[in-house]
Design a protein around this nucleic acid. Sequence first.
DNA 1: TCCTCTAGTAAGGAGTCCTGACTAAAGGAG
DNA 2: CTCCTTTAGTCAGGACTCCTTACTAGAGGA
Lengths: 379, 379
Amino acid sequence: MTAPKPSLELLRALTDENVLRVLMAHDRLTRAEIAARTGISKPTISESVQRLEQAGLVVDTGERTTGRGRVGSYYALAPHLGTALVASITPHGVVAEAVDARGRTHGEVRTALHADAGQEAAAEALGAAAARLGESAGPLRLAVVSAADPVDRATGRLVHLPDAPFLVGALDPPAVLAGTVTGPVLVDNDVNWAARAEYEQGCVQGVDDFVYLHLGEGLGCAVVGDGVVRRGHGGLVGEVAHLYTAGPDGRAMAFTEVFAALDLRRDASTAVDVPRLLDLLDTSDARAERVRLALAHAIGGVLAGALAFADPRTVVLGGPWGSHPRLIDAIEEHLARSPRSVPLIAAALPLPELTGARARAVEELGSQIVRSAHPTAQW
Amino acid sequence: MTAPKPSLELLRALTDENVLRVLMAHDRLTRAEIAARTGISKPTISESVQRLEQAGLVVDTGERTTGRGRVGSYYALAPHLGTALVASITPHGVVAEAVDARGRTHGEVRTALHADAGQEAAAEALGAAAARLGESAGPLRLAVVSAADPVDRATGRLVHLPDAPFLVGALDPPAVLAGTVTGPVLVDNDVNWAARAEYEQGCVQGVDDFVYLHLGEGLGCAVVGDGVVRRGHGGLVGEVAHLYTAGPDGRAMAFTEVFAALDLRRDASTAVDVPRLLDLLDTSDARAERVRLALAHAIGGVLAGALAFADPRTVVLGGPWGSHPRLIDAIEEHLARSPRSVPLIAAALPLPELTGARARAVEELGSQIVRSAHPTAQW
DNA sequence: TCCTCTAGTAAGGAGTCCTGACTAAAGGAG
DNA sequence: CTCCTTTAGTCAGGACTCCTTACTAGAGGA
């Protein structure tokens, strides 16, 4: 609807963006190579490279081509363009790393937390990791944070919903990182980042509409629609704890209560007792079989909700017990008897939430660099 | 990620797009006015207008300015640019009209169908309406069709889901219109178009995330996420018939079966008996009260699903019985006792599906015209 | 020693947009 | 009736961007 205003500045900005983007993908290129890859003429590329070198966004690496013909100079993104902080916060600890616009990791800090360490410990670990990475890897221009709890879309703060386990605790990542990160702090929950990872380099590449159901201590879900993780108004898409489903006795109850009814909750908590559950999944007696059936029925209800509101091409099952083969078998059997069905896949990527968050960080850092070359151009 | 290649052709295309867009919004303007509104200089606009007049996209209307100063010529979009067919197909009949790129309606054809007239009758009515409008309103460059049944996203054909009433019947609008409409035929179900209408000119303007629940003979729903109607992989987002919810006895059952359990289905059909239901909503005895409670509980379950998978800012209730005040009251009471809640609004627009489809048609026609000015430019 | 091949530069041209001055013509003031 | 004001549109010139073509510089191979 809104066509940008034509201007010569726009053209220049577009040329520069082409150059920067191709350098983000290829770490060192001669001007001739840039011209070939972008399809833009050599003289134009030469001007753009000169302009960007002047602006400090691109540098002559000093390396030269070898082989026949005139020696060429390799150019690359300037090294001091800054990095992005990528952090994952789970009940077990904080993992943080810095990535640059090329997607290279520049350091990693792991801080273990013992269970129920409290939010102060998590905040401190995050802040300390950021400080260390900021020193070693250069200025942190933005941060992308994954948290094992629902995240408020507007503020980036963690939210405690009723009857949901609050794994990481009250935490305000933008506030914690305000001092060490100069730019925006993007926070989302781990399941959403994991879904992004599976979409970009996992088991559902090319599938623009899918649902990722995470089954662990908490119950979470991510909805990818038209190739983008959907967050809804408050960022609470995927909070399936209160979805109505079928309980073990056939009565309608909230999904989270199924685990209470099956005696699969940790003491004095609303968190799922994962070791116990895994144990049951591996057992073959009649009681274990009943539990499997009850779980399949309950999860079938959740999937009916997913079908109704997200119409996925595929459902990805992840989390500590979500990808258990016997569980998937049981759910598939249940779905086969349902009026509508959907293919199931087990998630496969290791540390998917970090992978997804990293991809977002690289993307955002790239956009920031492109924008910084032409602050006034908008299109 | 993909920056367009800079070129002078791109600039020219952008100028032309600015001119065309402003003429779509303002039906007649002098070149000076176009320059003022777009912010582009007068000489550049003059060139563009000349180019577009040459191409036949813009015409000198012959009208001249009055008042002080030199007389100016008013230009407008060429009248023969074609129109778009907008059609709504319901069990009661077919309503069709033609709209031009300015959003003006150029004719309307209403064809009543008696209930269960069959798909041949509907197809014939649609085809006949298109033929008539094509003759009277000029060539139909595209069509936007609303149907009161689920629509397959890939093919545009209507889909019959198990246990859902098939109101309009097997119908393949793209095939029916292939002869009379030269361009694409966009088909979607009426609830999705209604949601778009409420978003653009109804009760949820500016709300980027909401859910529209349509309660009539069929049970449907639309999900708007980040300002766009979400359709999912197959176009079946919003098909809530098989969502698990609570039945009158508290047992988990599919939403559609609640109406069977409450004896609120039409004979030999899975369609809701709307007159009977409205009657009960207006009655005050104990039995009616029990039905209201049961409906509120069941719909509460559907809304729990919406909260889990769409996280709407607001829920819009529409359809013949969806916006009944006593029903809304009952649902609100139920939600107040639930762990999570959401504001409810009654839908208000008349013929919302036609309004939404019309908006899409105008948008698409505009894009087609813009593209036709520069077929090779891509950005 | 000469030829070939390649990165980068120069020159010139076409095209786009802009500014500022100019022209044409209508309405109002005196 | 004449002159002034006001406005739409054009003209001329300039700045700038991209492109094509031709050229230069310099390394490796014959």
